[in-house]
Write a protein that binds this DNA or RNA. Sequence first.
DNA 1: CCAATACCTCTAGTCTCTAGAGCAATATAT
DNA 2: ATATATTGCTCTAGAGACTAGAGGTATTGG
Lengths: 137, 137
Amino acid sequence: MLSIGELSKRTGVKVPTIRYYEQMGLISEPDRSEGNQRRYSKTDLERLAFIRHGRDLGLTIDAIKELISLSQHPDSPCVGADRIAREHLDDVRIKIAQLKRLEHELERIVSHCDGHSIEDCYVIRALSDHGLCEHEH
Amino acid sequence: MLSIGELSKRTGVKVPTIRYYEQMGLISEPDRSEGNQRRYSKTDLERLAFIRHGRDLGLTIDAIKELISLSQHPDSPCVGADRIAREHLDDVRIKIAQLKRLEHELERIVSHCDGHSIEDCYVIRALSDHGLCEHEH
DNA sequence: CCAATACCTCTAGTCTCTAGAGCAATATAT
DNA sequence: ATATATTGCTCTAGAGACTAGAGGTATTGG
């Protein structure tokens, strides 16, 4: 049986965040000690690790809830879970593409800035003027 | 003189968001029509385009505020602006790296899911078990 | 056994918007 | 010129995913 602090350390999820997840119904209410403190089992730890991992991957709380509920109907096919992952993959690819364009632009911006007065500052001008962009946002 | 709707169309910033920016002090209070509706000048449009562009680039409202205040002291060097862009570039590169790892992992997850029952579902297992990951998050 | 640390609940705040209610002004069609 | 449709106004609340703080209680280490 783990205290909330232990659980936090082992999963990397902050203590208030664990309580928040409980409130949101992502994890069930754990057992309590005599003094009313939360005590977690290994199962709880696995569940939280699952959630943590999903969040790290950028899944929303709702997507994770969906996955959890899917995993509690072991007879149904995993098509639902696959769909969630697939949808997310699309998002991720779009985000990567956007960020790469952005990286590119920031590189250009930074490399043009050589400490002149603000009037000539490439950063300011680039932000003011879309025409300086190589790509559309 | 543009209405808030016109301004919105030309900048791609939604109407409530424009009002929100005004409230946050990012744009100054515009002139009003007889009937108390906001009327924007070309200067206002440029300012909003600047903000929009910065937000698209992922700058926080505070960073943009900093840039605006920098741009209003045209004698000072643009080192500050450069610093903001540079810091942001670092962030962007980190995010790209993270997302690429994630893309990789999601690809693996999706390609392993072939419609079996949830017990065997790779998506669920991969999310439960960090050991299946190729990379640490 | 006592002090330090961790835990409890509850409320409110963060950030960047977004949505809705209820009403006023402006634009368009007849 | 008038009826209607669209757009605008303010204000409040909500979303999403936490985070912080106050004021008090358990547990743990020395």
